[in-house]
Measured scan of single mutants.
Amino acid sequence: MQVTWGNVTVTFSNPEEAKKYAEKVARKLGGQVELHNGQFRIK
């Protein structure tokens, strides 16, 4: 499962870890987490 924002992509084998990481990054950037085609995207 991947977490992407800007031109950065981070890949996780565990979807739960990916979700936690995406939420943490979104909080830092003041963005929203979207699940899109099996990727968490931060907008």
Rank of each mutant, 00 (worst) to 15 (best):
Gly6Leu: 08
Glu16Asn: 10
Leu35Gln: 07
Lys43Met: 12
Val25Ala: 04
Tyr21Cys: 11
Val10Tyr: 12
Lys24His: 14
Asn7Lys: 12
His36Lys: 10
Met1Glu: 03
Lys20Asp: 10
Leu29Ile: 14
Glu34Cys: 08
Ala22Arg: 00
Asn7Trp: 07
Lys20Ser: 11
Gly30Ser: 05
Glu16Val: 13
Gly6Lys: 06
Ser13Ile: 10
Lys20Leu: 13
Lys19Pro: 00
Gly31Ile: 05
Glu34Ile: 13
Val3Thr: 01
Thr9Lys: 06
Trp5Phe: 09
Ala26Lys: 02
Thr9Leu: 08
Leu35Ile: 13
Lys43Ala: 10
Met1Leu: 12
Trp5His: 07
Thr4Val: 15
Glu16Asp: 13
His36Leu: 14
Thr4Leu: 09
Gln32Arg: 14
Gln39Trp: 04
Glu23Ala: 07
Glu17Leu: 13
Gly38Cys: 09
Thr11Trp: 15
Glu16Gly: 10
Val10Thr: 05
Glu34Lys: 04
Glu23His: 11
Gln32Lys: 14
Gly38Ser: 04
Val3Lys: 00
Arg27Ala: 14
Thr4Gly: 04
Trp5Ile: 10
Val3Pro: 00
Pro15Ala: 14
Leu35Tyr: 15
Gly30Leu: 05
Met1Lys: 07
Asn37Arg: 05
Gly38Glu: 04
Lys19Asn: 05
Gln39Asn: 12
Val25Phe: 04
Glu34Met: 07
Thr9Arg: 06
Thr4Pro: 01
Thr4Gln: 09
Tyr21Thr: 02
Gly31His: 06
Thr9Ser: 08
Glu23Asp: 11
Val25Ile: 15
Lys28Glu: 13
Ala18Asp: 00
Val25Leu: 14
Thr9Met: 07
Leu29Glu: 04
Asn14Ile: 06
Val3Phe: 05
Gln39Lys: 08
Lys43Tyr: 13
Lys20His: 11
Ile42Arg: 00
Lys43Leu: 14
Asn14Ser: 13
Met1Asp: 04
Asn14Tyr: 06
Lys43Phe: 14
Gln39Val: 15
Phe12Cys: 05
Gln32Glu: 12
Val33Pro: 03
His36Ala: 09
Val8Met: 12
Val25Thr: 06
Arg41Gln: 14
Tyr21Ser: 01
Ile42Phe: 02
Glu34Pro: 00
Asn7Ala: 09
Gly6Ile: 04
Glu17His: 12
Lys19Ile: 08
Glu17Cys: 08
Leu29Asp: 02
Thr4Asn: 07
Val3Glu: 00
Gln39Thr: 13
Lys28Gln: 12
Asn14His: 08
Gly38His: 15
Gln39Glu: 14
Val33Cys: 05
Thr4Trp: 05
Leu29Lys: 04
